[in-house]
């Protein structure tokens, strides 16, 4: 009922505001007539004339504000459609999320650096190493990385034995593979560039033999065979690097 009345009044008002003669019919209705006549009186109210001086003063202030905005805009980094309040807020949120992800990612990578096999962070450590290799394009850089990774595997083997009295064959195998990959690359490098890497690889293979021998002393007899084979492989590699072995391009692969 009330909605019908709202609607009827609105129809009458629309006619009234449009100057439609049909409004007379609505004006005659007892319920709508007084309201429509009142609306007609309101419509007849004069619109106040603004003071021209006030208008000019406002225009002057608007011009001044525009100039300030222009000056501020020239120093901006982004186009105006990227500087709206909503867009800025959205960009700030995206940036915050990206920074948070980067921080979490970086924190995880740092935390994984000391992880051992069987740790939940160990796959992160190995993945990070693969990414490092993918992002390194020079052969010398790749050789350097393989040597570093081989050294890490050796440390992991020693720590595993020290803390858990266990030996991880996969880690040992990975150490030997990384060493072999480094040696293969070093052999392709020209001499001035290969020299420091050769020296480092030689030191590493010697260190591998020493450390694995210590590990063997602590390990149970079931691991001796594996460790002996690994030590022999390291010795072969060292001989190749020092020129005692005939073929440097055929590095020895350790235990499977």
């Amino acid at each position: 009922m009330k909605e019908n009345l709202d609607h009827a009044l609105d129809e009458g008002l629309t006619r009234l505001l449009a100057g439609d003669e049909g409004v007379e019919e609505s004006l005659a209705q007892p319920q709508l007539g007084p309201l429509l006549r009142l609306a007609r009186e309101i419509k007849a109210l004069p619109r106040p004339e603004p003071n021209p001086r006030a208008l000019r003063a406002t225009q002057a202030r608007v011009r001044e504000a525009a100039k300030l905005k222009q000056q501020a805009g020239r120093g901006g980094l982004f186009p105006h459609w990227l500087t709206g309040q909503r867009v800025s807020l959205a960009l700030a949120r995206v940036l915050a999320v990206v920074i948070a992800i980067a921080l979490i990612g970086f924190g995880t990578v740092v935390a994984s650096a000391d992880s051992l096999p069987h740790s939940p962070l160990y796959p992160v450590k190995r993945t990070t190493e693969r990414v490092q290799l993918l992002l390194t394009f020079s052969p010398g850089g790749k050789a350097q990385l393989h040597l570093s990774f081989a050294e890490r595997r050796l440390n992991e083997t020693m720590r595993l034995m020290s803390c858990c009295q266990s030996l991880d064959d996969a880690v040992l195998k990975s150490m030997l593979e990384e060493t072999d990959l480094a040696i293969k690359i070093i052999c392709t490098l020209p001499m001035p560039e290969a020299e420091p890497l050769l020296s480092k690889a030689t030191e590493l293979t010697a260190q591998q033999q020493t450390c694995l021998s210590q590990v063997r002393d602590e390990a149970s007899s079931e691991h001796w065979c594996t460790l002996d084979e690994a030590i022999a492989a390291c010795r072969c590699n060292e001989q190749m690097l020092t020129g005692e072995a005939p073929d440097m391009h055929q590095p020895v692969v350790g235990p499977d």
């Binding site: 619109r47 106040p48 006030a54 225009q59 525009a66 905005k69 222009q70 105006h80």
Partner: peptide, 22 residues
Amino acid sequence: AKRYEPQALAELCQLYYRDIYS
């Protein structure tokens, strides 16, 4: 006006001042 041209903003002001003032 979105480029903050003072003249454009002043003209918008001129056009709509009376409506808003009223």
